[in-house]
Structure formats: structure tokens, C-alpha cells
Amino acid sequence: MGIEITINGEKKVWDTKPSETLLDALRNHGYKSVKRGCDEGHCGACTVLVDGKAIKSCVMLAGQAHKRNIVTIEGIGTIDEPHPLQKAFVHTGGVQCGYCVPGMILSAKALLDENPVPTEEEIKTALDGNLCRCTGYVKQVEAVGLASKMMRGEN
């Protein structure tokens, strides 16, 4: 089954099997930043942006991504030019093992795109679907607040 998708701004045509999840399709095509923590929609490690919304790619079929716009963590910043969220996560200590971090940052990005000045409660709500066992979340929540400030030029 051929699907057309835009990933991180690039148009792609992929051959996918009907039962293939978007997570598997992405990983098979080299987007290794999209992680698998449970494969059943519970942990958020596989989060990507689909048309700007944070979606768990393990519970979406690749076929459903046809003609949609996908963003993975590779698409928002690089080591040389990191996104403010990436900077903030590193700066605050929101990255320990980092396995949850791509998904966590993308959920945060979906929030900030919609609500550039979130309250702490709003941040916690937005990240609630992303599990992290290392950090206790304190510094990740702090990172999103910091990124919001940085994006407004306050930091």
C-alpha cells in the first residue's frame, strides 16, 4: 500500500503493509528518534506530531498518515541548532536516560504552539500522557516553562 506523507517538511512516498503502525513505518525508514516503550498507547515514547497534534504513533496505522504532515524530534532542531525546548530540557536536567525525551518534547511543542504561555497546571496536563521513570518530571515541567520564556525572548 503506497502512502504519501510529509515528514519534517520532506515529501515521501512509502510502501507500507496494511497492519503496519506508524511507529514501525517511521523506525523502518530510519526515524529512530521515535521510541517504543509499550506498543500499546500507554507510555508516549512514540509520540510524533501529526498535523500539529501530539499523537502516539504506535496506535496509529501508517495508512492513516496518508497525506498528513508528520514531525519527529529530528524535525524541530539539531545538535548545532537546537529548538528552545531541546535547550531547556538539557539545561534544566530534564534529560536523564533520554528515552522518553523526544516524545515528551513533542507533546510540549504541541502545547506551546497552541498556548505559548501555559500555566504549570497546563504543562502538567499536556505531558500527562508521556511517562518518564527517571526524572520525577520536576525538571521536565520546569523545562517547558523555561522554553516558553525563551521563545518569547525572555531568556
Binding site: 528518534s33 521515535v34 545538535i79 531541546q86 534529560v95 525525551v101
Partner: peptide
């Protein structure tokens, strides 16, 4: 700065499955 911080935050760091 954590030595592997940006590699992890930018999705570049490699885990076994990568």
C-alpha cells in the same frame, strides 16, 4: 552541560534498537 544531553534531546543518541 550533560555530555550526551543534546544528542539525546535531538533524537540522535543510539539505543540498542536504533
Amino acid at each position: 552541560q550533560k555530555v550526551d544531553g543534546f544528542s539525546l534531546a535531538c533524537g540522535k543518541a543510539k539505543f540498542v534498537d536504533d
